[in-house]
């Protein structure tokens, strides 16, 4: 804008991007990237440092040697493989269940004939459940799981994560279903295609991107879930977040193993999200727009 070369109009990018001038834009870009990337660099290098270096004062910014010591220690001492498997099974199972049943319910509420009143009530319920804090049901759930002898089982964690993910999936999928043109279903209806077949043969393939978005959000949520994993597990059904928190509360400053566990926790979801980035961002944006 400041430069008077008016041969080319400033593009939209530059109008919004240079809202406070070009130098400030560059500063914001550089500072924000450093702010995000440096802690991640610190996490990664800490996981590869030798014990003397992750505990040294002053801290070592560039490690002199890289070692897999911390990774070996978490796989050996902390049963990493088992915990990783727990986390994966819990996240995958609860995602699969909530996406299948959640989109069915969402379709019925968005497009089915269950009556206006019921629609309104369900819509409100899903929203309220998305809003209220997990801690509100922690104690009753703990008591019930204790009575049912489900403490320290993956089943308990799958049940609870599915319970958190269903409202999220329903909420997102309702948005995607409402975007579909009604004519599509009407013509299918005239061709004698029933509700169930309509859903599985026509709607399901069309809203695949939406389901992928919902599935990643659900998976990441369950993968990172901490409160219930912490309350409902003792040993056998421990998940990665519980293990990470354990490094702080149980033993002193084991930054190396802690960092390697955090890296192991981050990498799988990072690969998943990057591979399906377009869908994931769409899901995030959709969730916000729907509110």
């Amino acid at each position: 804008m400041k430069r008077k070369t008016n041969t080319k109009l400033p593009t939209v990018d530059n109008i919004i991007g240079n809202f406070a001038g070009r130098p400030i834009r560059i500063i914001i870009v550089v500072v924000s990237l450093v702010m995000i990337l440096f802690p991640l660099y610190w996490l990664l290098t800490s996981s590869l440092k030798i014990k003397g270096e992750y505990l040294s004062n002053p801290p070592v910014v560039v490690p002199s040697v890289l070692t897999g010591e911390s990774y070996r220690s978490v796989f050996g001492k902390d049963h990493m493989l088992e915990i990783f498997l727990n986390t994966f099974i819990v996240a995958a199972a609860s995602t699969a269940i909530s996406v299948v049943f959640g989109s069915m319910a969402a379709y019925a509420v968005a497009r089915g004939s269950i009556g206006k009143q019921a629609k309104k009530i369900f819509g409100l319920w899903f929203m309220v459940q998305k809003m209220y804090p997990a801690i509100a049901t922690a104690i009753p759930v703990y008591l019930v799981m204790r009575t049912l002898h489900l403490i320290d089982t993956r089943t308990a964690l799958v049940i609870m994560n599915t319970s958190f993910n269903l409202p999220l999936v329903i909420w997102l999928m309702m948005g995607f279903f409402e975007q579909l043109p009604k004519e599509l279903e009407e013509s299918a209806m005239l061709d004698g295609c029933g509700f169930t077949r309509r859903f599985f043969l026509i709607i399901f393939p069309l809203t695949k991107p939406g389901m992928i978005a919902a599935a990643i959000l659900a998976f990441v949520g369950a993968w990172n879930e901490f409160l219930f994993a912490c309350i409902l597990s003792i040993n056998k059904s421990k998940t990665l977040p519980v293990l990470i928190a354990g490094f702080i509360t149980d033993r002193g400053l084991e930054w190396g193993p802690m960092a390697s566990t955090a890296v192991i926790t981050l990498v799988p979801v990072l690969i998943l999200v990057w591979a399906l980035q377009k869908h994931f961002v769409q899901g995030l944006a959709m969730g916000a727009v729907k509110g």
Binding site: V220, F226, M258, A262, T265, L266, V269, L270, W274, Q277
Partner: peptide, 29 residues
């Protein structure tokens, strides 16, 4: 955008411990 996604998908527990490590009074960066 790919970079901005990282804190969004990182386990909050991991974020808390990572910063606890970085904010440590003696060994913190």
């Amino acid at each position: 955008t790919s970079v901005f996604l990282i804190p969004t998908i990182m386990a909050p527990v991991a974020i808390g411990t990572l910063w606890r490590m970085m904010l440590d009074a003696t060994t913190g960066i």
